[in-house]
Amino acid sequence: MKTYEKAIEKVILLSAIMATISVGLITFFIFRSGLPVLLEYGIIDFIFGTTWSPTNGDYGILPLIAGTLSITIGSLIIGVPTGIACAVFLAEILQKKWAKAFKFSIELLAGIPSVVYGFFGLVVLIPAIREYILPIYQFFDPEVSQTGFSVLAGAVILAIMILPTIVSMSENSIAAVPVEFKEASLALGANKMETIVRVLIPAAKSGILSSIILGMGRAIGETMAVLLITGNMAKIPGTILDPVATLTGTIAMEMGYASPTHQQVLFAVGIVLFVVIMILNIIAQLSVRKIGGNA
């Protein structure tokens, strides 16, 4: 029995070491492949360069950053209010047993492969944008002609994809607000809505905030779904119907045929993503820890 336990312990330890080493190696590899070209090209030129044209040796990733940023922000604008409203509804308004069923099905959304979302966007969303949103634009400016592959399409799909994260984490933190706060508010003559907006949401704000940050991390890192529906044009978008290319999408598409330098540049793009997502995760962790401290 003793030896058996010891063996298990060793196996677990080994797995932990392996996991840590893999992460370390991947990090090392990305930086080793991307850093030299990044330094050679110049970090400023790389990040603030407005032309992404790898075949001509122009490696300015500002259009890609703009692409990623625009659909990420768009997805947050759509997804955050929806997600919080949904979380409030599940935590405070719906009966417990129904809330459970709803929450379960929203969490299922997280399990759908992202290419399926992309495909859904392709066959449903893009034609819809072309048919219903584009005419609104053309009403003001008849010259406009767009395909539907756009910031808007990416933002909508990403909003759906980050919903499970936002809803389930926000719901947990709203439900964890002590009932005493709610009672205190109601006993002062506040109605349900005032109590939710002024007491429950503020009291749950660090949890809600970290859910948003994690959702944002997911939106930035998402590749496949946005690749299929944003049009992949490395240009800074002017309107929400313009096509854009994202950091992740560009890596995925160009890695296959990239020349050696181009390939190293794509690794440098990877470094940018890595750093951004690392920072977001750290912020999220810190704010979660803060809830623990308060409770």
């Binding site: 005493e180 706060f181 009672e183 205190a184 006993a187």
Partner: peptide, 10 residues
């Protein structure tokens, strides 16, 4: 109403 456990808002 004043409750058993002090419950000021955060």
């Amino acid at each position: 109403m004043v409750f058993q456990k002090p419950n000021p808002f955060p």
